[in-house]
């Protein structure tokens, strides 16, 4: 077992998040998929940080978390306001920009 175990785990998580984005229609769940992808990246960051004996990777993960928090705030606000106006959280219904 090497650091590659963590990377494989991160890949699996990232893939799950990706497939979630593509397959699920509830925008909240889709959003959770995005969060999972961010966490997978964080895992990889930390694994590499340990591999190089360097705290910089941890810093990167930290910033990812901060940005994720900001993103969640805005994203959920968007979802809420969409739900208010359209009474739905399905990503498939939000296709007004197409026309």
């Amino acid at each position: 077992m090497t650091v590659s175990a963590y990377l494989i785990l991160a890949s699996v998580l990232f893939t799950i998040g990706t497939v979630t984005v593509m397959v699920r229609r509830n925008s909240i769940i889709v959003f959770m998929g995005v969060e999972l992808m961010l966490n997978a990246a964080n895992l990889a960051f930390l694994a590499f940080a340990r591999m190089w004996g360097n705290v910089d990777g941890q810093l990167a993960a930290f910033f990812v978390m901060v940005v994720a928090a900001a993103e969640v705030v805005v994203g959920l606000a968007i979802i809420v306001s969409l739900f208010r106006t359209r009474r739905t959280v399905s990503v498939d219904d939000e296709n007004l920009l197409r026309h």
């Binding site: 090497t2 650091v3 590659s4 990377l7 494989i8 890949s11 699996v12 990232f14 893939t15 799950i16 990706t18 497939v19 593509m22 397959v23 940080a49 340990r50 591999m51 190089w52 004996g53 360097n54 705290v55 941890q58």
Partner: peptide, 28 residues
């Protein structure tokens, strides 16, 4: 498409991991 692409992504990512050699883990 989602499933196939997900599998493809997994293959690509793990391929990258498996094909890489990692250095001695220094530890933090």
């Amino acid at each position: 498409a989602g499933v196939l692409l997900g599998l493809g992504l997994l293959v690509v990512l793990s391929g990258a991991v498996f094909r890489s050699t990692f250095t001695f883990a220094i530890g933090t």
